[in-house]
Design a protein around this nucleic acid. Structure first.
Lengths: 200, 200
DNA sequence: TGTACATCAGTGAACGCGCGTTCACTGATGTAC
DNA sequence: TGTACATCAGTGAACGCGCGTTCACTGATGTAC
């Protein structure tokens, strides 16, 4: 019975591997373009075992969306509470608008990598909205003298800038969307020479 | 030979019907979720005829993305040239941030309905970027005292606000993203009682 | 400690289905005389 | 004007394929005695 717990822990570790693989592949190729088979293979398993962990692909999608964005939101909340507002601003806004974030679609914020997709999946929306509210609170804590309304506009700018940067065919145009948003939100002229690495 | 032209016109009208049906269905359900069969049926045809008009589904996708956004861009350009900057601002920014636009996904701006999808389809990106540039020029003409950089941030805000409004589970949260962006860009407090209908 | 049994996470063959694409055809329309 | 023929947009059956899902199974691990 005590050993059973170790087995359960192993199973939930496997489950987490599936979730991580799915989060990565969905962002990289789009949800519909990634099959259960590909996800399980990326997690080092065979496809049949999938239904021991999730009731359907759609259930996985909802959980990936919720969990993945919740992790970002928790990170923002932590930073905004523990760091000075200037440092927090740099870590949150700065890394969101860093070229590294726009480039690394496979680990980019779900609002930008799957935003338009998720709008069509009602089962994922409540989880997403909860995290969005947490992200707004975090931003409100670290953006100087901004009310709720301005903070919402700021998050919109961040999301839109990353989406537009990824749509640009020309790297200069992509960069200029990020720079424009950064200068609007942080008052900086351009991205720093060494951009802060983006974590989720 | 002269009558042939009438036939050709009919064929290109059919082609346009296919493009329109695809543009609508892709936005509504996502590209991968809509089959050639469904598109042709929506255009009043059977699936086999598709390949008389397009070489592949992927070719259709690229053309839909390009043509659909080009139409929006042309409309913005026209408005920004023919109307006073205040009227143009209302027509472009105001209707983009109107609840009707967020609600009508099937005819919403492609940057918001298929933005994250299109980032994964390199063949569509150059057409999209061209239209984005035209849209930036139109915005620069009608937003007061904004340089290129601020205009890019403004377009980012518009795109992000519509994406976030569609992701919200609560209509109040959705509305507040639109209002926040509107007040940021137009200096208005809230959406007017009768929102201007959004055209593409 | 050693042996027989139970559990259950993961395997892999199989299913029905809808996809993108092909192709032989049909039948309305336009041309030739 | 009337008839025979050519064109070609659109039809619909058929294809191979990969999808999501099911299920009988295996074999490693944990339990009972």
């Amino acid at each position: 019975m005590l050993q059973m717990r170790r087995t359960n822990e192993q199973k939930s570790a496997t489950r987490q591997r599936i979730l991580d693989a799915a989060a990565r592949l969905f962002r990289l190729h789009g949800i519909d373009a990634v099959g259960v088979d590909a996800i399980m293979h990326a997690a080092g398993l065979t496809h049949g075992g999938f239904y021991g962990h999730f009731s359907s692909k759609e259930a996985l999608v909802a959980e990936v969306a919720t969990a993945s964005l919740a992790r970002s939101a928790a990170r923002w909340a932590k930073i905004s509470r523990e760091e000075s507002s200037e440092t927090a601003r740099q870590l949150i806004v700065g890394s969101y608008l860093a070229p590294a974030h726009a480039a690394a679609m496979e680990q980019g914020c779900m609002l930008t990598t799957l935003g338009s997709d998720m709008a069509r999946r009602p089962e994922a929306k409540s989880g997403i909205a909860t995290s969005v509210r947490v992200m707004l609170e975090a931003l409100e804590r670290c953006l100087p003298a901004q009310g709720q309304r301005q903070v919402q506009a700021s998050l919109s700018t961040m999301v839109g800038a990353v989406v537009l940067a990824r749509l640009a065919d020309d790297p200069m145009l992509a960069q200029s969307f990020l720079d424009a948003a950064r200068s609007e939100l942080l008052g900086e002229a351009a991205s720093p020479p060494e951009a802060v690495g983006h974590k989720l």
